[in-house]
């Protein structure tokens, strides 16, 4: 933090650009949410491509509209959604590291493929940790580039930690093709059934795992509503209890809500179960109107998938 220097200046902020590290932990019992990247996969690749360790703060750009100017020579990478990024007006390929020279302009337009792009800079963005984390949670006023939970605004300066020599300096690192997800394809979301799954009617369970679900426009970093056939559950409400990442709760209107990084820490609706971390990431890249399906999975294979994903960044 002390050796941080100016890295980028915000010329145009767009609707929502937030600094995110791996998330805030250890304080959920105080009602403080987790935060962190909505798409762990895209965020992890952006950092990895510039040689940053797991957990380094990177910028989550939702929808686009962001325009940045480099204040010094930087090595950067963009991964996750294709938001029509350009470098000094020329189209820019994602999923690779490249050099951004002082004065050059990096701009994000609108979604082409996916919803959230991640920008990482070699050495990492520098920001004051709040309650142990840089994760930006606007609703709580915690974290982010200024520590106060603010989204980026025009005129903001993003500080960076200069990269250490010999690490993350190499240009042209590319993610393998299997890591580059086509977010326009139908998404199948892995769900680990939870304790209340037996409280749903048989017909509702059949629908839950066989019907197509449409991503509603009520979707943000707290949660994503899914629209489809109504599900009925014998329980309508419960005594409030802790809610994990990806929990799929079903309020009395029968329309499920998948709870993401900025969800409230406790809640009292019955749940079908929990999406896996990678299913949450996939859902976070879906635009309203997109179709998704829920697929019940067992713990072991899901854990195997997650461990394989994390091993790529060890």
């Amino acid at each position: 933090m002390s050796d941080a220097v100016d890295g980028l200046r915000v010329m145009r902020a767009g609707p929502l650009a937030l600094l995110q590290d791996a998330g805030r932990c250890g304080v959920r019992r105080l009602g403080v949410t987790q935060g962190g990247p909505a798409d762990l996969h895209g965020w992890a690749w952006a950092n990895h491509l510039v040689g940053n360790a797991w957990g380094t703060p990177a910028l989550e750009v939702t929808f686009g509209g962001l325009e940045l100017v480099a204040e010094r020579d930087l090595t950067v990478a963009v991964a996750g959604a294709d938001l029509g990024a350009t470098l000094d007006g020329a189209p820019l390929d994602g999923w690779r590291s490249f050099s951004l020279e002082a004065g050059q302009r990096l701009a994000f337009a609108t979604p082409v493929n996916g919803l959230r792009a991640y920008l990482a800079v070699a050495g990492g963005f520098a920001a004051p940790p709040v309650l142990g984390s840089v994760a930006c949670v606007v609703r709580e006023g915690l974290g982010g580039h200024d520590g106060r939970g603010h989204r980026l605004a025009e005129g903001d300066r993003l500080r960076v930690t200069p990269q250490r020599a010999g690490r993350g300096c190499e240009l042209g690192h590319e993610a393998p093709s299997e890591a580059r997800i086509d977010y326009r394809r139908p998404a199948e979301l892995s769900l680990l059934p939870g304790a209340q799954v037996g409280e749903f009617s048989g017909e509702s369970l059949y629908r839950a795992f066989n019907a197509p679900w449409r991503v509603d426009d009520r979707a943000d970093r707290m949660g994503v509503r899914l629209a489809g056939p109504p599900l009925s559950c014998r329980m309508t409400s419960m005594i409030s209890e802790g809610i994990g990442l990806g929990a799929v709760q079903v309020p009395p209107d029968g329309q499920p809500i998948a709870l993401l990084n900025d969800r409230q820490t406790i809640g009292g609706y019955p749940r079908l179960g929990a999406l896996t971390p990678l299913a949450c990431s996939r859902l976070a890249q879906c635009l309203p109107g997109q179709e998704v399906r829920l697929k019940a999975v067992a713990t072991e294979p899901a854990l195997e998938d997650y461990r394989r994903f994390r091993a790529a960044f060890a």
């Binding site: 409030s240 209890e241 820490t265 854990l303």
Partner: peptide
């Protein structure tokens, strides 16, 4: 241990699945 959420009648225990299996 990653996090703990006590609430009324329950405790949600969140652990690191890379270091500990369910």
């Amino acid at each position: 241990l990653v996090d703990l959420v006590p609430s009324y009648t329950t405790l949600l225990v969140i652990f690191d699945p890379l270091r500990l299996s369910p």
